[in-house]
Write a protein that binds this DNA or RNA. Structure first.
Lengths: 129, 129
DNA sequence: AATAAAATAGTAATCATTACTGATTTGGGT
DNA sequence: ACCCAAATCAGTAATGATTACTATTTTATT
């Protein structure tokens, strides 16, 4: 711990203290309450860094913004096409269908993306060692 | 059927004849082989329309491009962080973990997004009727 | 053939995100 | 404490995928 700059710490705090899956701009505005002269570029850079390290999650729901989630544990996201909200839902029993129907949400489509390394790139990496 | 313009038909054909989950630009280049003077805006507009109607799927993996999928049936997408490929995987038994480990793919993160209408917006719609 | 509605080509504008630069901070070694 | 190198930062400029716009063309209906 404490490899974190004051700025990165504040950004992470904002993410951990909300469940709205904010955009970079939203995080920027919130962090400015604490660090008024923080740069938007700093917010973007740290969000990217935290995503790369797996500390946070980044998700695109198709509204033109990247959204971030301080909870990097596997769970489902319910995106409303009308109000644009993104709600969390548990992935009980690893079942997609169950998760989507959670809490009165009416799903019409769903997208599941796993991030990692494909078989081909895995074998290439082994050869390099 | 045949509410489709020649352009939209060609765009849909391109999507149905590949499994690379192309970007709008890639689709544009392919359709130009058939309709050389098609406009990039037409490609974007039709992709958006087809996505809205559920005919195709739109997914963002975080590489700065929107990707499209002619197969709108629920299935998993395996995105390689190294080569950027997006492979399809079946969702056997509705299990996320199984799908991600498919075919030598090594997952590190996953994102599941269900699109639809949330409980609150559902009740508002009912009141309008 | 006439008309209205929908879709298109081509181009201009948008704006979230990224890149860049010079200043500031941090941490380790002496 | 001091020095130095590596990271990180604030501020601003640039990028480029996507969207908006307009005049024209196509399509569907009568």
């Amino acid at each position: 711990m404490k490899n974190f700059s004051r700025q990165r710490e504040a950004i992470l705090n904002v993410l951990h203290s909300t469940d709205v899956h904010p955009t970079a701009g939203w995080v920027y505005e919130r962090v400015r309450e604490t660090i008024p002269n923080i740069s938007l570029g700093t917010v973007y850079r740290n969000l990217a860094e935290l995503t790369r390290s797996g500390e946070i999650l980044s998700l695109s729901v198709g509204d033109g913004y990247e959204h971030f989630d301080g909870n990097s544990a596997p769970h489902a996201h319910l995106h409303c096409r009308i109000c644009g909200s993104i709600a969390d839902a548990e992935l009980k029993s690893d079942s997609l269908a169950d998760a989507a129907r959670c809490r009165g949400f009416t799903p019409d489509t769903s997208v599941y993306i796993a991030y990692g390394v494909c078989a081909e790139c895995n074998s290439k990496k082994e050869k390099q060692i």
